[in-house]
């Protein structure tokens, strides 16, 4: 069959770079504390669910999971709401300052997150939003909004203006046009933007760390605490890793299925 060797090569590379690390991480999460796992053993002496159970009993971790999900959902909703009108204006209305505004919207992607974090962290400190969940949501939205606007406006741009005029001439109000014409056609863009936003919020570390830590402890902040401390506990880190990865990867797969292709994502980011 055509491309069989290509297929074999690509999947082998994937197995080595993606599957193998996950297997090792999984082994670490299953290490039995009595046996331990020391060099030169290639696999642990004994395997148990000890660390999973211990983490399961850790209320702070359960709180972190819930908190991360809530924050990511809020960031996604907020980004979508803020982005839609702006994306529409950029996609469908010609005006003179458009290029400048497009550049400004991209700027938060250019300036490193830590700097944005330190700037916003201080501002929030003054207005009392520091170390609060709303503060973290607002800070993360700075980073996700540019992606959301880009992707939505690329999607909206691809909808021919003639379709909208045709619908209007057939008697549809602007609202109905939005509901029956624009929304169904822009759906892949919403999914792509929403997925990217949710995931990048879920995995965001720098801004959350500066604005929220240690009071607001999302999963990545928690992971940092487990890994960045003086004593590193690999099995615990492995368990937290999977707890972070499972929902992200799951959402990612669902969104992939809904999107069917990368068009919207690539169109939004394929030019600067």
């Amino acid at each position: 069959m055509k491309g069989r060797w290509l297929s074999i090569g690509l999947y082998s590379a994937l197995a080595l770079t993606l599957l193998a690390p996950m297997v090792v991480a999984a082994l670490w999460s299953l290490v039995d504390p009595k046996g331990g796992w020391f060099a030169p053993d290639i696999v642990p002496r004994a395997i148990s669910l000890h660390h999973w159970q211990a983490i399961g009993l850790d209320r702070s971790l359960l709180n972190s999971i819930g908190l991360s999900v809530v924050i990511s959902l809020a960031v996604t909703a907020l980004s979508g709401l803020l982005a839609l009108p702006t994306a529409y204006a950029l996609a469908k209305i010609p005006f003179r300052a458009k290029r400048a505004i497009e550049m400004f919207i991209l700027a938060p992607l250019i300036v490193p997150g830590l700097i944005v974090g330190i700037g916003i962290g201080y501002l929030f400190f003054r207005v009392g939003l520091a170390y609060s969940v709303p503060g973290v949501i607002l800070a993360q939205t700075i980073g996700t909004l540019p992606f959301m606007i880009r992707i939505l406006s690329a999607t909206l741009e691809a909808i021919p203006a003639d379709l909208i005029f045709a619908a209007r001439s057939l008697g549809a109000t602007p609202f109905k046009v939005g509901l029956h014409i624009v929304a169904p056609l822009a759906w892949p863009g919403f999914i792509a933007g929403g997925m990217l936003t949710f995931v990048s919020s879920f995995e965001e570390f720098e801004k959350t760390f500066i604005v929220g830590a240690p009071q607001v402890e999302t999963l990545t902040v928690k992971l940092w605490a487990v890994l960045g401390g003086k004593v590193m506990i690999f099995p615990n880190a492995a368990v937290v890793t999977f707890i972070v990865l499972v929902p992200t990867v799951l959402i990612f797969f669902l969104a992939e299925r809904a999107m069917r292709n990368d068009g919207a994502l690539a169109a939004g980011m394929g030019k600067l």
């Binding site: 803020l82 009108p85 702006t86 994306a87 919207i105 607002l138 939205t141 700075i142 909004l145 606007i149």
Partner: peptide, 13 residues
């Protein structure tokens, strides 16, 4: 139309 997105970034970025 531009205000929500652009205004947010002006204020917080």
């Amino acid at each position: 139309l531009l205000l929500p997105g652009v205004g947010y970034l002006v204020l917080f970025f």
